[in-house]
Design a protein around this nucleic acid. Structure first.
Lengths: 114, 114
DNA sequence: AAATGGGTTGACATTCAACTCAATAATATG
DNA sequence: CATATTATTGAGTTGAATGTCAACCCATTT
């Protein structure tokens, strides 16, 4: 399972929705040449917020593309920045170098909170 | 209780360790005038990594100062960026807008993992 | 008084992400 | 083929973050 690049994945999604680079670019509010470049991995993926917009326009959840870039939407970053408790959690987690499985367990426990 | 500023807190720590601005700056690798400015809140707090260096030099844990700025060290950000499972967790958490208490609970559960 | 050590200030510099713009190439369509 | 649409590429721009540099001030010591 070939790790597809961000660009290639985006290109596939866009084409599957029958949207041109220009249409996408206009709707998102960036230059079409920029779309071309990120699709061909000539530039690093866009800012997290731009990725979110792209996914909105294309009608897909942003999670996959965001995960590929290791970026977090401004909204989430800010939410964490304002929460020392969240930061403490993250520092702990970092110290423990959690595995994917452990993160999944935590996600489960998270959902049980409500 | 007055929320002390980042600058004021740093100045207190530095003085308590009997270190001059210039000594600190040299050890950290920045200009001494920069230390002066952040201590007097003339500039925003330094980058997270610089805060960590400062704390290393002063021999204190960086957690408090980092928490005041809402910044996360590169190391932690990278660790999360590389872990889709961690990102999923964070997105879930964001959607739920956790309270401080809930974050604490999660931190407890985190510690129980090992 | 001159030098020294410490601190402060204002203006300017550097770096990087995240784009835009102009030109050119490729591709589809009449 | 012709031409319109679409995609690609190189060069340049912009703003924010993160500092540096040179020139000071003030207090203490020599």
């Amino acid at each position: 399972m070939k790790n597809k690049t961000f660009g290639h994945t985006l290109k596939e999604i866009r084409r599957s929705k029958d949207v041109t680079q220009r249409q996408l670019a206009t709707a998102v509010g960036v230059d079409f040449s920029y779309i071309s470049k990120i699709e061909n991995d000539r530039m690093p993926p866009p800012a997290a917020d731009t990725i979110v917009k792209i996914c909105e326009v294309l009608g897909v959840p942003p999670d996959d593309l965001l995960a590929m870039t290791g970026k977090m939407p401004t909204q989430i970053k800010e939410a964490i920045s304002e929460k020392p408790a969240a930061q403490e959690f993250l520092r702990e987690a970092q110290n423990m170098t959690l595995t994917d499985d452990e993160w999944s367990i935590l996600t489960q426990q998270l959902k049980k909170l409500r």
